[in-house]
Computed example of a mutant assay.
Amino acid sequence: MSASSKRNLVKTIPGLLVSAFFLWYTFKGISFSQIRALRFTHPAWIAGVLAFTCASYTLRCVRWTRMMRSTRAGFGVCARVLMTSLAANNILPFRIGDIMRVFTYSGDLGASPSVILSTVILEKLLDIFILVLLFVVFMGPGVNPHSRVVAESLLGISTVGLLVMLLGARTLEPLLRKLFAYLPANPTLAPKLQKIEHWVLLALDCIRQIGILGSLLLLVQSAVIWVCEGMIFVSSARLIGLAVDRIGPWQGVSVANLSYLIPSSPGAIGTFEWAVKTSLVSHGALKPQSALFSLALHAWLLISVTGAGGLIFLIHRIRIHNHTPLLEEIETLPTELP
């Protein structure tokens, strides 16, 4: 094992400990007999789980293809790269999947890493905005006041970030050019400043080409994506006959996905289960059923997304005759934008 691999392994230990704590906290007091009691009470809802899962991730691929329109990358390539990166995020630490999307597949996408990075940031901003909006809309009167303040603050920050990226790119570009022109011509800093200017202007140009109408369409697509994601939660709850009110699954989808912001193991194992259980219990569901529901649903999402992305990844590697071990490829990733 190389020195960098050993360092990365040490860095993952705190995340694993966080996940272990949240798993223990979520499932403490639940007996094995309660786990065995989990049943499909309404099997027809399996179709809903499958349909909304396919719809959610197909629409994610469509959305990212639209973000990458300036590169002329087609739907097939964008879908392959996105699903591969999502699968990698689920099994590898440090959001390696997003790093691979920016660096490893820039050649396949015909785009510079800075352009891809700008779309990844925009994608995260759109998702956080919709998720926080869902949380604010569906949080009940009994929510902790501190949680309400944090949620409303996140909503404000994500709204400002979206407005700056989507509506301010055309205005920011000339201002940033002037700013970089006024910076002192230090021989040591000049090359790095030129790189930063190049990255920033490329990213703004990518966002600018999307346009206001295109930005609004991306926002609508993001809302539809998260409605589909919410329906996965609703369908799963109906599938096992979980006794919860109508708001519970929708608060669950927002809190569960925001839990990915908590440093933990890849795939947010532990934090996801805790977030879903807490949300459902606050809306009338029993603790054992809520905990088991969160585990089963998370397992489905991890297996389906990681399985689909991993299969696409392997088929592509076989087709292009790439036999380099994945971990070796990851160790050769650059540490900064070229």
Rank of each mutant, 00 (worst) to 15 (best):
L16N: 03
S259N: 07
L155A: 06
L311Y: 03
T306Y: 04
V276P: 02
R60D: 00
W199Y: 15
A285N: 05
R69C: 05
C78W: 02
M165F: 14
R95Q: 10
I232E: 03
L193D: 01
L86K: 02
A185T: 13
L134S: 07
T335V: 09
C54L: 15
V10L: 15
T171C: 09
T58H: 11
T188D: 14
H283A: 02
V276M: 10
W199I: 11
F94Q: 10
G211N: 12
R95I: 06
S114T: 09
N186M: 03
M83D: 00
V281H: 04
L327A: 12
K11F: 09
L189C: 04
N89F: 04
P325V: 07
W226S: 05
Q221H: 13
D108T: 06
R208F: 04
A20F: 12
P288F: 10
R69D: 07
G15N: 10
L86Y: 15
S294T: 08
S56E: 08
G214L: 08
P141H: 07
P288S: 13
L126S: 02
M139H: 13
V164K: 01
A51G: 06
G241N: 09
M100P: 01
A185L: 13
H198E: 06
L189F: 15
S114V: 03
S279I: 08
I269A: 08
P191Y: 08
I46H: 00
L314C: 04
I91E: 02
I121N: 09
R148A: 11
E273A: 03
G267Y: 00
I232D: 02
I121G: 11
S147P: 00
T271Y: 03
K287F: 05
S279K: 06
P145F: 15
E173D: 10
S264F: 11
S112F: 07
S2C: 03
I121L: 15
D127R: 04
L179D: 09
H298G: 04
K124W: 01
V62T: 04
L117Y: 05
A185W: 06
Q209H: 14
S235R: 11
A111W: 10
G252Q: 08
G97Y: 02
T188H: 14
I240H: 03
G110K: 04
G142W: 08
K277Q: 14
G15F: 07
M67F: 12
L134T: 10
L326Q: 03
F293V: 13
V136E: 11
F129W: 15
I46V: 15
Q251T: 09
A203S: 13
V150R: 07
G270L: 04
I130G: 06
F40R: 06
M68S: 01
F313G: 02
F180S: 09
I330V: 13
I99V: 14
M68H: 00
S114Q: 07
L297H: 02
L202Q: 15
D108I: 02
Y260E: 02
W24M: 03
H146M: 06
L176V: 08
R39M: 08
V49T: 10
D108R: 13
L333H: 00
I247G: 00
C54D: 01
C54F: 15
V255H: 00
V102H: 04
I116S: 06
K287H: 12
C54R: 01
M100L: 12
A296P: 03
A44C: 05
L213R: 13
S254G: 10
E328W: 01
F293E: 05
G214I: 09
I30H: 11
G211W: 12
L217F: 11
A275L: 06
